[in-house]
Design a protein around this nucleic acid. Sequence first.
DNA 1: CACCTGTATCGATAGACGTCAACATAGACA
DNA 2: TGTCTATGTTGACGTCTATCGATACAGGTG
Lengths: 121, 121
Amino acid sequence: MPNAKVLPLLESDAVVPCCPPLTERPMTAEEAESAARMFKALGDPVRLRLFSAVASHEGGEACVCDISDVGVSQPTVSHHLKKLKEAGLLTSERRGTWVYYRVEPSVLAAMGKLLAVPAAA
Amino acid sequence: MPNAKVLPLLESDAVVPCCPPLTERPMTAEEAESAARMFKALGDPVRLRLFSAVASHEGGEACVCDISDVGVSQPTVSHHLKKLKEAGLLTSERRGTWVYYRVEPSVLAAMGKLLAVPAAA
DNA sequence: CACCTGTATCGATAGACGTCAACATAGACA
DNA sequence: TGTCTATGTTGACGTCTATCGATACAGGTG
């Protein structure tokens, strides 16, 4: 049963239909505009640490209080989380006192596909 | 006796020893600094188009003259190509009149791994 | 109600970035 | 040599961005 196993997150059509792999054909201006937004969001060390902290946290979600120890002030943390949210990489939800952020797996997968390297050397 | 052909340390899974997948554990400040440089390089629409144009070009390399039609001036194209080079995403070589840029597949692969989504849902 | 804690927003500032015109450099060719 | 083309560099300018302190908002507790 070769096809009994479905790749969990990568096959979904829910994946943001951004663009074909970078190596497939030259991106159009619109595609580049859209994809660059996501790369840009991860192009800051603080945001990358925040995102990684959320992504690697148990259950793929984390309270701000769990991840805000990245060496910048609280307003700055909040600012970066907002940017990641605007880029579609994170979603947030308030539960009582705390706010929880979680990763958007489909977007992550879409970015991974963009960087896919063709099998042939 | 010298080897006729030595494979660079850049192939295989050894890739650039940047960082584990974003979802594996929180990145350290140093890892984030390094990885953010690469994402940042792709975080500009013009650079993304240039990179995609090179990556999708025949043989994985392209002359500047082949890809410089992205709607900005020639100095700006040169500036962005330099940035991509500094980020380790492209290499360049002059051959006669023209300068050819080619992608660094190992770096691309490393970025892809960074974004790898765990198989388990 | 008042108070405390966690998080977001505001306003200001310093520095980074994208862009261009002008100029410099490298190679081809006569 | 000189000139032409292709590409890189420089300097300047306007915009974006990361950061902070101060403040506002939300929800829990007493």
